[in-house]
Design a protein around this nucleic acid. Structure first.
Lengths: 361, 361
DNA sequence: TTGAAAGCGCTAACAT
DNA sequence: ATGTTAGCGCTTTCAA
């Protein structure tokens, strides 16, 4: 016989032995409410009277209560499984991204998974793969975070999505970004302030959304300085070192070469420095070179590159937290907040820029 | 009155509704044993008769059973909290490390935390910090994974430790490594096979354990080829681009310059290429340059660098899995296995090497 | 060597 | 608006 009958006597609520991690019951006891009410407060559910809510909040902070995630998961509130879809080849970007995401995931007690993504894979098979891995939230970075149709497809499939370093707002998805146009403007202005007038610009490829933004910032700064635009000073690269080399060679070979070159990423800036060196030009003495992104190469080569830093780790952290919240809100059928967080960039001044030398000024 | 009496009737063991994830009860049912026995098998405990063990194993694989980690944690088998202590500035290394660790952690269902580490911090305060964060396993990388006293201190404090890309075996800690001497030998031999006889070597700094190993590999290959060692061909760098530049300049400025340069890391190799370019030397036409590590810079600059790749992600994955196992074994007072895993490196041939040109041969 | 009972801390479903 | 009950899937303790 498998059946059996048991008697359970529920003693008065167990009081805490000291030192141990407080549970929801301790909070309830302290606040003079039931555990369920505490649970409701924790999960931000509506329908708890303000006074009790405060009581609970106080008890929580006095006790230093932190929900036990294992218990939560087990009890059915569903694990928060976030996957970071990556297709970005830059290791520096990736590692900052991972560290930030990992910390965010830790803070909100979510599970993070990293999934490499093949850009040629059709979106529906990607979705299937993700469903299969039990993911419920997606963290996207450039370039796919800027592809409106991909994002829409993912959202339609039921994933919550959060986009890192995206260049545009998209419906039903959270994003964290810096203002690329303003950053580019700031760098150009910096060069202008140094005294440069002929500033070469190595633009990004047309298919990347940031390219246009950065070009616009450059143009605005030059305009404001009253400098007539010279198309010869604008060369297009594709973010690779190789393309930067070619572009810089074109710029440096001009009859009237620029006294400064602003490349749209660090790899191309590094290449511009190499190109200058080949021509026996000193950087920054003969020509200033600035980059964008503040990736590893900016500080490995010599001279170290003046560049724009995006707070990638922080962006990733915030995006991850927001994503987990979105997933949880969705699970409890709470209202979704579609947020767009704007973070500040930083102009990191290093050794690759200087005022134009008197001979070229 | 809080007290109460309840009757619970335990129906015959719930059979699984289809499609749902199997539980330990399903496995038990199928194997015809109690859940407890299944639990014992899962946890590798001794004291289960071989026949039943097999029965259980079969049931597990037939059902595709995977333990529910939330339930496990909740029931008291203690969460496996691994922290990756990092002090390695290389972003490429870090990102591979993180991805590998993350995957490993996911596989064994452990929680991964990344903690930056300050080399000036005394070891006891580091330990305190780690204890505080509830860590029970530590993942170490160069340089601290090679510091015997630090590792001993950590082990003594009760942490399980697993070392990634270490250069030596240490007591009570697991490690995963490649054979640096053999890798260096292989690269030197490769250059020799190409026909080079004068091979410059840019060595690593004395305080890093790998330096000696890599130098030994170079020396052994040169020896075997019957080439008399020329101290002028061996220059010391400190793994930075800057130092590689200086070193390569010294080498290239020799009365009889080498036809190939083997730098102990990619940053220095990249610098050597830049130094060659400044002298209007073509790489690899006039001089071959090889690196070590296969970090991002190896493929960003031009020409792309022939180098040695360590399977960093794989190493991290294995180290993480081993670490989690060690933590769990320790928790259940099971015997500890101190393992040392040796992985193969790869010589990645790219565009920076070629046979010596006839003029210099 | 094996199994039954009793929770771990939380939340979903159901009262009230 | 709040509380009560039952149970998530596992492991621990204890009994057989």
């Amino acid at each position: 016989m498998k059946g059996s009958v048991t008697e359970i006597t529920i003693a008065k609520r167990k009081s805490r032995r000291g030192g141990e991690r407080p549970t929801i019951a301790d909070v309830a006891l302290r606040a003079g409410v039931s555990p369920m009410t505490v649970s409701r407060v924790i999960n931000g559910e509506t329908g708890v009277v303000a006074r009790k809510r405060d009581l609970v909040q106080n008890a929580i902070s006095e006790l230093g209560y932190v929900p036990n995630s294992a218990a939560r998961t087990l009890a059915g509130s569903g694990l928060c499984r976030l996957v970071l879809l990556h297709d970005n080849p830059s290791a520096g970007f990736m590692s900052a991204l991972l560290m930030g995401s990992l910390e965010g995931a830790h803070q909100v007690d979510a599970q993070l998974q990293v999934e490499p993504m093949d850009p040629t894979e059709p979106i529906n098979v990607l979705c299937a793969r993700l469903k299969w891995s039990q993911a419920n939230g997606l963290l996207l970075t450039a370039p796919i975070c800027d592809d409106a149709s991909v994002v829409a497809g993912l959202v339609e499939s039921g994933f919550a999505v959060s986009r890192i370093a995206s260049t545009q707002k998209l419906p039903d998805s959270h994003d964290v970004f810096i203002d690329d146009e303003a950053a580019s403007y700031a760098m150009t202005k910096h060069l202008l302030t140094l005294g440069h007038r002929r500033i070469g610009f190595i633009q990004g490829p047309a298919n990347q959304a940031v390219s246009a933004l950065r070009a616009a910032g450059y143009a605005r700064a030059m305009d404001e300085a009253g400098i007539q635009s010279d198309q010869a000073l604008i060369v297009i690269g594709d973010f690779t070192y190789r393309s930067g080399m070619t572009a810089a060679d074109a710029l440096l070979g001009l009859e009237q070469p620029p006294t400064a070159i602003f490349a749209c990423n660090d790899d191309m800036a590094a290449a511009a420095i190499a190109a200058a060196h080949r021509r026996r030009l000193d950087v920054p003495q003969d020509v200033s070179v600035c980059g964008f992104d503040d990736t590893a190469i900016a500080t490995t080569i010599w001279p170290e590159i003046t560049t724009i830093r995006q707070p990638v780790a922080e962006m990733a952290r915030l995006a991850t937290i927001a994503l987990a919240e979105a997933v949880r809100a969705r699970n409890s059928r709470l209202p979704q907040i579609e947020a767009h967080q704007h973070l500040a960039f930083q102009l990191i001044r290093r050794a690759s820029d200087a005022p134009p030398s008197s001979s070229s000024a």
